[in-house]
């Protein structure tokens, strides 16, 4: 008989719990700051926030080892921050300043910090799934022990690359973890209204011989445990996992979207009853973490984000001489002699 799951919820130690809270709280404050900066017209272009989805980024990143690789979508600020990328670098890139992670050459949708294992954020739906598969192929080929994690939204499950990548990863038993953040909406359209199955990722898992895994994506502990299991499976050569995390996007799809398509009361319901940060904070207290420790975490995060904001604001725009650098590997852009 299978072992009964622990109900005590005490398999994660306090240190780890505080890490998980810190990570979620940092994402929350930084994303809110990104929104404020957008209102001040300091964040240019577009931006896609993960407000309400913080537990997924925090849970997976906390379960990763240092050499693991993350592949993100344009909604990738959270995953980039969760891997430890500098807040100045992230906010600076959103503000398209010289201090940005990519010096303003990529922008909000393409956050990359290879020094932290963030192998890029991709803005063409589905494209980064096969790339994560390729990173996993390299790990298997070269005998490395890193796992590739690829994060994507519910809408991605209806594009071809999703299916190609899953089949490919299973065929070659590659160490890659596919993480669907099901936030209920494909941009402005309810995902259930345009998908043949109820659970857009999990209900497709059986087509690729994978377990159907659905978790509460707003519970960082559950995310963390599920991630650990998937990483240990991948590292022991048992191949890929597909995990559907149920969550809710509290912000619009992008900065241009006020979310008018939501039924009345839905957003309030999620904010009030199922906000990952509120839930996790209560749990910390329930498990006896001193309020002072939580307050300190929150204050530190706010200070960090405030300082990063000021630093990014005072950073110059990128110098014009980087316009034509790094097109090719020789550093330049020459296409002819």
């Amino acid at each position: 008989m299978a072992k009964k799951k622990t109900l005590k919820n005490d398999d994660i130690d306090e240190k780890k719990r505080l890490e998980l809270y810190n990570s979620q709280y940092l994402i929350r404050v930084a994303e809110q700051r990104a929104y404020d900066l957008f209102l001040e017209n300091l964040v240019k272009g577009t931006s896609h926030l993960s407000l309400g989805q913080e537990a997924i980024a925090a849970g997976f990143a906390t379960a990763m080892q240092e050499n693991d690789k993350s592949f993100c979508t344009y909604r990738g600020h959270a995953h980039t921050l969760a891997r430890g990328a500098s807040v100045v670098g992230v906010l600076g890139e959103l503000m398209q300043r010289d201090c940005g992670l990519m010096r303003g050459k990529g922008g909000s949708m393409h956050l990359t910090d290879t020094s932290k294992g963030v192998m890029g954020s991709y803005a063409i739906i589905g494209a980064h799934l096969p790339m994560a598969v390729g990173s996993a192929w390299r790990a298997q080929y070269m005998g490395h022990d890193d796992v590739a994690t690829v994060f994507f939204g519910d809408g991605t499950t209806n594009i071809g690359a999703f299916h190609e990548a899953l089949n490919y990863a299973v065929v070659y038993k590659l160490p890659v973890v596919f993480v669907c953040e099901n936030n209920n909406y494909m941009e402005y359209t309810p995902i259930e209204s345009i998908t043949a199955v109820k659970n857009p990722a999990a209900d497709r898992a059986s087509a690729y011989g994978l377990d159907s895994i659905i978790i509460d994506g707003n519970d960082a502990d559950e995310v963390y445990r599920t991630a650990q299991a998937a990483y240990s499976k991948a590292r022991s050569g048992e191949g890929p996992s597909l995990i559907e995390c149920k969550t809710y996007r509290q912000s619009g799809h992008s900065r241009a979207d006020p979310g008018a398509y939501r039924p009345d009361g839905e957003l309030d319901h999620w904010k009030k009853n199922n906000d990952p940060i509120t839930r996790y904070r209560s749990r910390l207290i329930e498990f006896g973490v001193k309020k002072k420790i939580i307050d300190d975490i929150e204050e530190n995060v706010k200070r960090l984000v405030d300082e990063a904001t000021e630093e990014a604001k005072s950073s110059p725009v990128p110098p014009e001489d980087i316009l034509t650098t790094n097109v090719y590997a020789n550093g330049g852009w020459a296409w002819r002699n």
């Binding site: 690789k69 592949f71 192998m119 790339m131 390729g134 990173s135 390299r138 790990a139 080929y141």
Partner: peptide, 11 residues
């Protein structure tokens, strides 16, 4: 995509 992911990470 697989070729690209592998190339990005050392192959």
């Amino acid at each position: 995509g697989a070729a690209m992911g592998a190339a990005m990470t050392g192959m």
